[in-house]
């Protein structure tokens, strides 16, 4: 099911937590929702899951208005809220059975679904323990299990990998990617490599407004105005090399990265590339070029550039 969000606005007092947001997510797509704390990610997710009503705008799920068909549409949504609230005095199995029943799964099919979820999330050894006795990572799995128990076509996950160890993170990401092939997934996170690893598309939100929307590649291209090269040139005088590099017509700035190893950071002029020129320079002067790498603009940098005011 597709999700379409149109001009969503939510105000807390005079503060606009979400300000005229519009975007679409299609079936089979994993959307990464990025943004600094307090940017409006959680509020948007709460509106999509019908926990909050927007002040303006509308959410369409599968072409239907959420405000008019909430009870019917909620069945198709699996939701893992921020901080993963759970009943700590309930055993895992009882809790999952309760969630399955609330989701309207037939009584006879409930044990089968619960077993399936326990298998997928690897909770088998812990299934009879009370949720309060579990470690944070296992609780997170319980949260994911309850979100997926009714096999929803839409998954809304608010920071799904917090509190998991690196192995579990890899597992959960793999699970989300698998699910994402046939479902519509929106996940929010602070961990930037996670977005690259799991999401098809990235949406960066700041101060309630969307500041970027596209694939990781697309965002890189957008942010990357200038080429940045790391070069290491040997068999020559460091200062002479520095001057020679600076005199190239395509080069904007040169910086020493490591004087003793004669490594430089070369930034080209906008729209230019200096790779050939640097190579030819070395040939002319009988220097040895031992390293040349294009440093990619990191997602972190893009994120900071877009969200720092």
């Amino acid at each position: 099911m597709d999700i379409k969000i149109e001009k969503l606005t939510k105000k807390y007092g005079s503060h606009r937590a979400v300000d005229q947001i519009s975007f679409e997510v299609h079936q089979g797509e994993i959307l990464g929702f990025l943004g600094p704390n307090g940017a409006g990610k959680t509020t948007t997710m709460k509106i999509i899951t019908n926990y909050l009503n927007p002040d303006e705008g509308e959410v369409f799920i599968g072409g239907k208005k959420l405000s008019e068909h909430a009870d019917e549409l909620k069945r198709h949504i699996g939701y893992l809220p921020e901080n993963n609230p759970l009943y700590h005095d309930m055993p895992v199995v009882d809790y999952l059975e309760f969630c399955a029943a609330l989701q309207g799964i037939e009584r006879l099919r409930i044990p089968e679904r619960v077993r399936e979820m326990i298998r997928i999330t690897g909770l088998n050894a812990e299934k009879h323990k009370k949720i309060g006795e579990l470690s944070k990572g296992y609780r997170q799995r319980v949260g994911l299990a309850q979100a997926m128990i009714h096999n929803p076509s839409i998954l809304i996950l608010d920071e799904p990998t917090t509190g998991l160890d690196p192995n579990q993170i890899v597992e959960i990401r793999r699970l989300i990617r698998e699910l994402g092939r046939e479902k519509t997934v929106i996940l929010s996170t602070h961990i930037l490599p996670e977005v690259e690893a799991t999401c098809d598309r990235i949406l960066i939100i700041n101060d309630g407004k969307i500041v970027a929307d596209g694939t990781a590649e697309h965002l890189r291209k957008q942010a990357q105005g200038q080429e940045i090269l790391t070069v290491k040139i040997e068999d020559g005088d460091v200062n002479a090399i520095f001057k020679a590099l600076q005199s190239l017509s395509t080069v904007a700035t040169v910086d020493f990265m490591d004087r003793s190893l004669s490594r430089f950071e070369v930034q080209s002029r906008p729209g230019c590339t200096s790779r050939r020129e640097i190579f030819n320079l070395c040939v002319q002067n009988h220097w040895t070029l031992t390293e040349m790498a294009v440093s990619e603009a990191k997602l972190e940098d893009i994120f900071r550039e877009l969200t720092m005011n």
Partner: peptide, 13 residues
């Protein structure tokens, strides 16, 4: 504890 959010986002009024 926030569990009310879990409950009310399920198909229940």
């Amino acid at each position: 504890t926030g569990t009310i959010e879990l409950l009310l986002t399920k198909p229940i009024t």
